[in-house]
Amino acid sequence: MRLLLALLLALALPSLAAADPPDQGIVHVPIAPGTPLKKAGAELYAANCARCHGDRGHGTAKDGPKLDDVGALATDFYLSIGAMPIADPHQQPVRTRVLLTAYERQALVSYVSSLGPGPLIPHPHAGRGNVSAGMQLFTQHCAGCHQIAAEGGYVTGARVPPLGQATDTQIAEAVRMGPYLMPVFSGKQITNAQLDSLTAYIHTTRHPLDAGGWSIGHVGPIPEGLVTWLLAAVVLVGVCLLIGKRLRRE
C-alpha cells in the first residue's frame, strides 16, 4: 500500500514541477523606431547582460564568462532557449520561457557578435542527413548524457536536457559550442554533413517507431515497472478481490 502511494505520488508530481518559472526581471528597453539593430542591442545588453558579462563582453571574475569571442552562435543559442538572462548566474542555464522578443534577441545577437570575431549561426539540413549514420554518431557522442532516445539524463553536476524541444539550429549550436558542461564538437570531429545526420536522427526520436503501442516515455524499465505495479498488479489484485472473500469474523 505504501509502495503504491509513493508511486502514485511520484506520478502526480510532474504537474507541480511544470509550473512556469517566475519572471526573471527582464528589462525591455524602449527603442525608438529606426534605431540601428546593433545600437538597440547595446542598450539591451547594458540593461540585461552587463552585470554578469561585464562592459563590452569583457566578462566578470565570478558571475559570467567574457563574450567577445563567442559570436552569434552562442548568443543566439542561450537567448533562443530562454536560458539568458539568468536569475542566478551560479545555476545551470536551462531551457525556460523566452522573455525577450524576437527583435530584442536579434538585436542582442547583432551587438554581441560585433564585440569580436566568433562563429556564425549554423544551418543544419536534417533532410540531407542519414538517420542510421546519425544514430551511430548519437550513440557515440551523445547518448551517454542525453540517453539513446534523446529523453535527457544526468551527468555528475548537471541535469542533461531532453532534446524534444530543441530546434535543428539549437542542436547544431549546442554541438559546436558545448553549453554549460557539454563538450564542444568542432567541425573536425563532427563534420557539417554528420551534423545533418545527427539532427535527422534526433528528428526520429521525436516520433519514434512505437510499434509496441503506448510508448510510456522511451526510457526503459522505470515506467515499465510503474505500469507493472500500478496497472497490472492493481487490476489482478482487483480480480482476486472479486473472486475471493474478504475477512469477516463471526
Binding site: 544514430m135 551511430q136 550513440t139 557515440q140 547518448a143 551517454g144 548524457c145 542525453h146 540517453q147 539513446i148 532516445a149 529523453e151 535527457g152 539524463g153 544526468y154 551527468v155 542533461v160 519514434p208 517507431l209 512505437d210 510499434a211 509496441g212 503501442g213 503506448w214 510508448s215 510510456i216 522511451h218 526510457v219 526503459g220 524499465p221 522505470i222 515499465e224 515497472g225 505500469v227 507493472t228 505495479w229 496497472l231 497490472a232
Partner: peptide, 29 residues
C-alpha cells in the same frame, strides 16, 4: 498489455558494443 503498452523497444536502443553506453539504463523493476 502486450498489445497496447510498449515494453523494451529494443530497436530504439540499438545494438550493444563494449565501448557504447546510454544514460538512464536500468534493469527490469
Amino acid at each position: 498489455l502486450g498489445g497496447l503498452v510498449q515494453i523494451n523497444p529494443v530497436w530504439l536502443w540499438g545494438p550493444f558494443h563494449v565501448g557504447a553506453s546510454t544514460n538512464g539504463a536500468q534493469p527490469d523493476w
